[in-house]
Design a binder for these strands. Structure first.
Lengths: 256, 256
DNA sequence: TAGTGGTCTAGACCACCGC
DNA sequence: CGGTGGTCTAGACCACTAG
């Protein structure tokens, strides 16, 4: 037991065994008491090490069954891809995830969405709450909602909790008579809400990546604000873009 | 003590007190034993609750001194802003952070960078390791490095551990005789490396947001790969963009 | 029913801080 | 030096799973 904290030593050791394939994805780790015997530390120390690996997304524990190496795969989330080929009006969302609207209709706008929509916190809006799940495993991969101004969506089919036949923004463009021209995405990592933790099946201590997406028309009108969350350890965000030849971007913060 | 786990109850209670301003930023929380007395739970349970709040970035503990409400502010990182007004060749990086090159020169490319640079893992490259810190507090806010192909940077002033007089990409463009035309950013949240944890002053259990940035010239040549990390609880990524009128984006993954 | 992880306790010792 | 957080222990009890 070198000059290192015991729980870190245990965590590092197990992490190495997992990364090296000594424990393959889906494999069952030794029980906590076996690990305690093997590393010659107390059960609490083992639990602390396992908690760390859990929060790193490397393992998953099931009460009464055991602790297993995570086999959930990493998902890529392409920033801006939602506005890609969908313009061609063809079919639905070109996602490999199964889309479900769990709730839709009028509701008072949540505070943090009110800020993004630039409206007062007690305004009503049309909200469409969605879940996206892996069609094979059934695992919920994304939870979120879209919020639309009453002026655009009230009294329309967007109040129905049904998946729309094409990309949502195309529906909104039709109903609003305006075109989506710019957007602002704000990404954050942080602790999940209770709802998110339950839906995504996150172990305690796990984090989510959270996106607030604001879409505007040419005249600056906000057409839609949407909010999404993913398990932080299972998502990566990919952003591909062209670099302008002359200064065109807003003079904001800039690193490097 | 309602129907709730004790450590969650304590964490929720303290979180509420912090958010409500009952404990202001910078304020000292009661000692662990005081909290244990107050909540009538054991010290271990208090520690578990505090560990959670620490990983959420709400508090900070200093051995021998106490536990304090975090006062570090949230930083916004604008995706793509680095290529903004810098085009005007004017001065340095328009950042409000202090830039420091801690090391520069030839080195064997790290494995994960080799993948991004599309070169074999034992190739040598020019690496420039940087730290960005808050000029007021001295707090290191970002740690990272830029990796450049030998063909571009070997034997040039980019091997010197000195901050360059203008944006790095302008230097590279001059030396390479090519223009940055496209980039791909991949963002991930995850556990920090030891080096990152030390530099950013992260408490154990904290996470980082990690960026791999790949920049290419018109002909597809990779001009630069850079890597950066921030404390996950203190950074948000902002991406502002125009939405194309017709399908232009690559037909990739798309949600919603 | 036996085995597993989940929670919690009481108490010990150490390392660091500030007086 | 006393007070603080950091680490660790041994052991108890509960909740869930599987056979």
């Amino acid at each position: 037991m070198p000059a290192q904290l015991k729980n870190q030593y245990v965590a590092n050791s197990l992490r190495g065994d997992i990364r090296s394939g000594r424990y393959a994805p889906g494999a069952k780790l030794p029980t906590e008491s076996e690990l305690a015997d093997h590393f010659k530390v107390s059960a609490v120390t083992i639990r602390s090490a396992l908690a760390q690996l859990r929060s790193e997304g490397l393992i998953e524990s099931m009460q009464g069954r055991g602790t297993f190496v995570q086999s959930r795969k990493l998902r890529s989330r392409y920033s801006r891809a939602r506005y890609g080929r969908a313009r061609s009006d063809r079919q639905l969302l070109s996602s490999d995830l199964e889309h479900r609207i769990v709730e839709a209709g009028r509701q008072v706008v949540p505070d943090h969405i009110a800020v993004a929509m630039e409206i007062s916190p007690d305004t009503e809006v049309i909200a469409r709450h969605r879940l996206l799940s892996d069609p094979v495993t059934g695992q919920i991969e994304e939870i979120g909602a879209s919020y639309l101004p009453l002026g655009i969506a009230a009294g329309t089919y967007l109040e129905d909790p049904v998946v729309v036949p094409k990309a949502l923004f195309l529906c909104v463009e039709e109903l609003a008579g305006k075109t989506y021209t710019s957007a602002r995405d704000v990404w954050r990592a942080g602790p999940p809400t209770v709802e998110q933790a339950v839906a995504l099946g996150l172990p305690s201590g796990a984090a989510v990546v959270h996106l607030i997406h604001v879409a505007r028309a040419q005249d600056g009108t906000i057409l839609e604000v949407s909010e999404s969350a993913w398990s932080a350890t299972h998502v990566q965000i990919i952003d591909e873009y062209d670099i302008p030849e002359e200064a065109e971007l807003p003079p904001q913060h800039s690193d490097i």
